[in-house]
Nucleic acid binder design. Structure first.
Lengths: 149, 149
DNA sequence: CATCATGCTACTTATGATGTTGCGAAACTG
DNA sequence: CAGTTTCGCAACATCATAAGTAGCATGATG
């Protein structure tokens, strides 16, 4: 199944913003992610609604962090990008009548709920500043194809 | 994001087969699940390849369990239906060059790996017989819309 | 041989993330 | 004020995948 890349993208962007003076335009961000400016705006809109970033129109405008990376957790961002269902497998429909199906879905739900709670706990314990510190120790300043910090 | 219902469906079917005398045809199974016979065959083929069920062509043929429910775990079935990626979120692409992206993906991967290990452990500890015993205590024999056991 | 059922291939449909285009609104520049 | 920049938004197009559909071949039963 195809995966939702919005969480990963937004984390990436936000950390770049944390090390960036001034606003970043959707255009610049899109080039960094090899993505589309409109898609960036679309996703960033969710973060703005939650108060994590702010946007400014017009010349010199763009996106800026509304709070430091230390005060943003993975859980915050996960929720802001729409809190997509974490799991790619699950019941196809919701418990019509068959008791066997109810038992199956109940069992699956138990297991997935436990895993989701674990994920949320981990997500809530990691700030973007933590991630930013977790750089691989390659020494270089990020001279990759794109994305020069 | 749309979820993969194959695991849930197959668990449902297998437990029915465990309480059923003789073979079940794809047609009957499809009616039970309100699904399509061809889709059933498609998914059951994976289970057959793993030796969990067997199929017989022709008159009186159909699908039968190749081993008792006690010897089938959720993990077995999960793998047999193609072992789809459990998670609906994840990195959209694989670590091109930017160290920040690598840090993000590395962190996410850690968390997801831990959750996946938990899921696999739980899956491996539950047999289909366990699920079959977990019937809701409604007392009725399953007189739902479809799926009379 | 007729019927039933799986096996398989190719095609269509449905859904959701993503990409694209166009136009409007706001803010800065000269 | 005119022009440029940049977000905001809506209406599409694209793409991948699960699911549905149709047709024909194969094998088993009677």
């Amino acid at each position: 199944m195809r995966q939702d890349g919005r969480l990963s993208r937004m984390l990436h962007v936000l950390i770049h913003m944390g090390r960036h003076e001034g606003a970043m335009t959707s255009e610049v961000i899109a080039q960094m992610l090899d993505a589309n400016p409109v898609v960036i705006r679309r996703t960033m809109a969710g973060l703005r609604d939650e108060g994590y970033v702010s946007s400014v129109k017009g010349h010199g405008g763009g996106w800026t962090l509304a709070r430091p990376l230390e005060e943003l957790t993975l859980l915050d961002i996960y929720r802001a990008v729409g809190e997509p269902s974490i799991f790619a497998v699950g019941p196809a429909y919701d418990m019509p009548g068959c008791p066997i199906e109810q038992a199956v879905n109940g069992t699956l739900k138990e297991v997935f709920t436990e895993a989701e709670e674990l994920l949320r706990k981990r997500f809530s314990g990691v700030t973007l500043a933590d991630v930013a510190r977790a750089f691989p120790r390659t020494g270089d300043q990020g001279g990759g194809q794109r994305c020069a910090p």
